Simulated assay, not measured.
Amino acid sequence: MVAVLVGWALWPQPDPEPRQRAYAAQTACLLTGAGGVADPVAQPVWAGMQEGSLATRVKVQYLEVDGAQTVANAETFLASLVQTRCDLILTVGEAPSGAVRATAARFPSARFVAFGPAEATSNVSVVDSSDPETVRRSARDLVTGLSPAVD
């Protein structure tokens, strides 16, 4: 009886199912000011992006402009998102949106969405950022538009 109990206690357990999330091939990136996604202006954009990711499994990530909050400094961070091949780059804040105005023409194949002051062009869309709920829904819809919904 003891041998049975010891054998049962020491019997190897099956490995648990992996809990990693399988993502779609698309990535939506957010460029924010120094406050990151905790900044009240960025919070609804990030919340909407996360909702869109849950619905479609599109990868979402963000990058903060570190250092001086100037357009010139933000351009460097924006270029790094373009180089990482983000399918959609959203910006929020004065310096990030200014960087889009200044550099979008250099990256004609990139798709940008500025939440705040910017000028719409062939590869730049602008979303009015006055109502947080509208901003959240817009960000969600932009992310869900990258990939069909997953069951």
Results as ranks from 00 to 15, higher is better:
residue 2 V to G: 08
residue 3 A to I: 10
residue 6 V to F: 02
residue 7 G to T: 15
residue 8 W to N: 10
residue 9 A to M: 13
residue 13 Q to M: 14
residue 14 P to E: 10
residue 14 P to R: 10
residue 15 D to C: 03
residue 16 P to M: 09
residue 17 E to P: 05
residue 17 E to C: 00
residue 18 P to H: 06
residue 19 R to F: 09
residue 20 Q to T: 13
residue 21 R to S: 10
residue 23 Y to H: 14
residue 25 A to Y: 07
residue 26 Q to E: 15
residue 26 Q to F: 00
residue 30 L to W: 00
residue 32 T to E: 14
residue 36 G to C: 09
residue 37 V to F: 13
residue 38 A to F: 09
residue 39 D to Q: 07
residue 40 P to T: 07
residue 40 P to Y: 07
residue 40 P to E: 08
residue 40 P to D: 10
residue 40 P to G: 11
residue 43 Q to M: 05
residue 44 P to R: 03
residue 46 W to I: 11
residue 47 A to W: 04
residue 47 A to V: 06
residue 48 G to H: 12
residue 51 E to I: 03
residue 51 E to L: 13
residue 51 E to M: 11
residue 52 G to L: 05
residue 53 S to P: 00
residue 54 L to A: 06
residue 55 A to H: 07
residue 55 A to W: 04
residue 56 T to W: 11
residue 58 V to L: 01
residue 59 K to G: 02
residue 59 K to F: 01
residue 60 V to P: 00
residue 66 D to Q: 12
residue 67 G to D: 02
residue 67 G to M: 05
residue 68 A to P: 02
residue 69 Q to P: 00
residue 71 V to F: 02
residue 71 V to K: 02
residue 71 V to S: 01
residue 72 A to I: 11
residue 73 N to I: 01
residue 73 N to R: 05
residue 74 A to M: 01
residue 78 L to Y: 13
residue 78 L to H: 06
residue 80 S to R: 13
residue 80 S to C: 09
residue 80 S to W: 00
residue 83 Q to N: 08
residue 83 Q to R: 09
residue 85 R to G: 14
residue 85 R to C: 02
residue 86 C to H: 01
residue 86 C to N: 07
residue 87 D to E: 06
residue 89 I to P: 03
residue 92 V to A: 14
residue 94 E to F: 11
residue 94 E to D: 13
residue 94 E to M: 12
residue 94 E to T: 14
residue 95 A to L: 10
residue 96 P to L: 11
residue 97 S to Q: 06
residue 98 G to C: 06
residue 98 G to D: 01
residue 99 A to W: 05
residue 99 A to P: 08
residue 101 R to N: 15
residue 102 A to Q: 14
residue 102 A to W: 04
residue 103 T to A: 15
residue 104 A to S: 13
residue 104 A to G: 07
residue 105 A to V: 14
residue 109 S to R: 14
residue 109 S to C: 00
residue 110 A to P: 01
residue 111 R to H: 15
residue 114 A to I: 10
residue 116 G to K: 00
residue 116 G to M: 10
residue 117 P to H: 08
residue 117 P to L: 08
residue 119 E to Q: 14
residue 121 T to S: 08
residue 121 T to M: 00
residue 123 N to D: 05
residue 124 V to T: 13
residue 124 V to M: 07
residue 125 S to M: 11
residue 129 S to H: 05
residue 129 S to E: 13
residue 130 S to Y: 02
residue 133 E to L: 15
residue 134 T to C: 00
residue 135 V to W: 01
residue 137 R to N: 10
residue 137 R to I: 09
residue 137 R to V: 12
residue 138 S to H: 04
residue 138 S to T: 03
residue 143 V to E: 04
residue 143 V to T: 09
residue 143 V to C: 03
residue 143 V to N: 04
residue 145 G to F: 02
residue 147 S to A: 15
residue 148 P to Y: 02
residue 149 A to R: 13
residue 149 A to S: 08
residue 151 D to A: 11
